[in-house]
């Protein structure tokens, strides 16, 4: 399963960082920022905050990766860090955003340039790309429509590929609670996807 491969990759990168491999550090820092970007958009729905969350993930990963005693625990630590960074950003404001921005639409720079800049994948024709983009947009809007406690579980488990145990660690809840929330989240997401 993808989740297992990803978990093993993080642990391997952390071990390489601890052995002094600078390329591994670069790869880990990029992954940390990718996680922060997706989490900001999919869970918090704040593309404007993504840069802050990415910066936080970058610096904390840089400081922590060389020191962590259990490399297998790194991934849960990273998601906990990113979640906390997003929550801090959220506390500065009162409300959730009215509209979530689709992942494809959030690539603009601070001046508003370069929106919708995903590169064309030569392996897919325009029709297939349009279908994919539309499905992705439906997924983003459906996620935004379900309550945050369910949204965060389905993002961590189904999209980010964390194990049930890792999700429990990130959220500070029991594994049984993760499973209950995940089932409810899947049902809610299914309803939203059907409604769009």
């Amino acid at each position: 399963m993808q989740a297992d491969r990803d978990g093993a990759t993080y642990a391997a990168l952390v071990r390489a960082v601890q052995a002094g491999d600078e390329r591994a550090m670069e790869a880990l820092l990029m992954r940390a920022q990718e996680v922060a970007y997706r989490f900001s958009l999919l869970v918090c729905g704040r593309p404007d905050d993504a840069d802050d969350a990415m910066q936080e993930a970058l610096l904390k990963t840089y400081r922590y990766a060389a020191r962590i005693r259990e490399p297998e625990a790194f991934r849960a630590w990273l998601y906990r860090t990113v979640r906390n960074a997003c929550l801090i950003g959220r506390r500065k404001r009162v409300n959730e955003p009215e509209h979530f921005v689709a992942l494809d639409d959030a690539g603009g720079d601070r001046d508003g340039h370069e929106r919708r800049v995903d590169a064309i994948d030569p392996a897919h024709g325009p029709e297939e790309q349009a279908l994919t983009s539309s499905l992705r947009s439906r997924l983003t809007r459906s996620l935004a429509a379900i309550p945050r406690p369910y949204r965060v579980v389905v993002v961590l488990r189904e999209i980010e590929g964390l194990s049930t145990r890792e999700v429990a660690e990130v959220l500070g809840i029991s594994e049984a609670n993760v499973k209950t929330r995940l089932h409810r989240a899947r049902l809610l997401l299914r309803e939203e996807l059907e409604a769009l």
Binding site: Q2, Q33, D104, A106, G108, E114, L135, R136, L139, I159
Partner: peptide, 13 residues
């Protein structure tokens, strides 16, 4: 979720 949830970062990002 598995297929559409994790696109690449947009180039500017």
């Amino acid at each position: 979720c598995h297929e559409e949830g994790r696109p690449e970062l947009p180039p500017a990002v």
